[in-house]
Design a protein around this nucleic acid. Structure first.
Lengths: 111, 111
DNA sequence: GCGAAGGGCAACCAGAAGGTTGCGTATGGA
DNA sequence: TCCATACGCAACCTTCTGGTTGCCCTTCGC
């Protein structure tokens, strides 16, 4: 149940990727509307194609998204596995906190 | 089920806070060991007191942690609610992605 | 009352991050 | 064949970020 240092590092990278409003919006859009190309995402996000490309590559580096070339367009899709991993990590942290509070309560009651 | 723009903004802030390795480690430590003071956290993180204070205040601004003055020490504790919120958001995104894939599959089969 | 421990505030610094523009390169369709 | 579309690469700029040091203030214990 205890996350490894490597797991924490990967999770930190994923959180950092999700921590930028434009990127989180892109993730949400991809998840909601399915795979789509760079230009469309750029148009909707209101930034240049190069800017959105940087964001998408950041998400890809974090393992949250995957880009596949199809003819002259690059199609992006959500990579749900890493998403599930970090979601689980948050659950673990929450649970650990509950445990810590319980131990604290027990210790106080012993006095 | 669809997250509001405000919810996305809050989540982005939380993710950004969690996206820094030192801060994620602090969160993990707080959750695992329970509430503790600034100096102890700084010592363990291997950075200066001022550095860790900035991190903790960042986490506090994101609603992930709360600092309470107790005598001359400032005691920090996890604020699990925002943590649960962002965890839930990740679940929603995952679910939306599954739906999108299913719609895609159905559309392909219609051809 | 005094020293040490825990903090707050501010200045400062180097590097990362987000964004833009410019330009050259493949690819699909009329 | 030609043109518009979708990209890749690179330079450049500005702002944000993580970290440090220096100094002064408050609180606890002896």
């Amino acid at each position: 149940m205890k996350p490894t240092a490597q797991a924490l590092a990967r999770a930190a990278a994923a959180f950092a990727a999700l921590g930028e409003p434009t990127r989180l919006a892109v993730m949400h859009r991809l998840a909601h509307e399915g795979p789509q190309g760079t230009v469309r995402l750029a148009d909707h996000a209101g930034v240049s194609r190069q800017a959105i490309t940087k964001h998408l590559e950041a998400l890809e580096a974090a393992g949250l998204v995957r880009g596949a070339r199809d003819g002259r367009t690059r199609v992006w899709s959500v990579q749900p596995r890493r998403l599930d991993d970090v979601q689980r990590l948050l659950g673990v942290i929450s649970a650990q906190w509950d445990d810590a509070l319980e131990r604290l309560r027990a210790a106080v009651e012993e006095d």
